[in-house]
């Protein structure tokens, strides 16, 4: 009687282990599929990052060199040589220079890219919410602006100006 019960017990053990093995195998497959679906396969992910990097390089250098370019413009009847960064400042003070600025932007990037250039004050950005961020141990309330792609440069002025170049396509 004991012998028979032992045999039954052993058979139960084997069935239990086999089911356990199948469950473990299924879990492995499920985790593998989930991890691939959430984080993607390596190749795809690397390709995306690189496309962004390629554009960032071009945006950064192209905007930086353009901001340093000097042009001659008429200020109060006098011809003066100023940098593009100064023309942006000027266009914020006197709206008449906005047309010259737009022409210069088109002249610079029109043949190279489909682009988007913006010179804005922080309050002109779409503020989504405010966040408390600790900088050097001091808590500060900062606006969380809408994520904008492209390269940013800060132009020191009476009012803060951010210039942004976003390349949409190469021509």
């Amino acid at each position: 009687m004991i012998k028979r019960q032992n045999k039954k017990g052993q058979a139960g053990d084997i069935i239990q282990d086999t089911v356990g093995l199948i469950v473990v195998a299924l879990l492995l497959i499920v985790f593998f599929i989930i991890s691939s679906a959430f984080w993607g396969f390596g190749k795809k992910e690397m390709q995306t990052i690189t496309t962004e990097n390629i554009l960032q390089n071009q945006e950064h250098l192209s905007l930086y060199s353009w901001l340093q370019k000097t042009i001659e413009i008429d200020i109060n009847g006098q011809k003066q040589e100023i940098m593009m960064a100064d023309l942006i400042r000027l266009s914020k003070i006197d709206y008449n220079y906005k047309e010259t600025l737009d022409q210069e932007i088109k002249k610079a990037y029109g043949n190279l890219y489909d682009y988007n250039v913006e010179a804005k004050n922080p309050e002109e950005f779409d503020i989504l919410s405010y966040e408390i961020i600790t900088i050097g141990g001091v808590p500060m309330i900062l606006p969380a602006v809408k994520q904008t792609t492209g390269s940013f440069f800060y132009i020191p002025s009476n009012e803060t100006i951010f210039v942004n170049l976003e390349i949409l396509n190469l021509k």
């Binding site: 390629i54 390089n57 071009q58 250098l61 192209s62 060199s65 353009w66 340093q68 370019k69 000097t70 002249k107 610079a108 990037y109 043949n111 190279l112 890219y113 190469l170 021509k171």
Partner: peptide, 16 residues
């Protein structure tokens, strides 16, 4: 294959 275009300055002249 990679293709890039930069706006650069050469003696204050804009170049591609």
């Amino acid at each position: 294959c990679l293709e890039e275009k930069y706006y650069v300055l050469e003696d204050n002249q804009e170049k591609e």
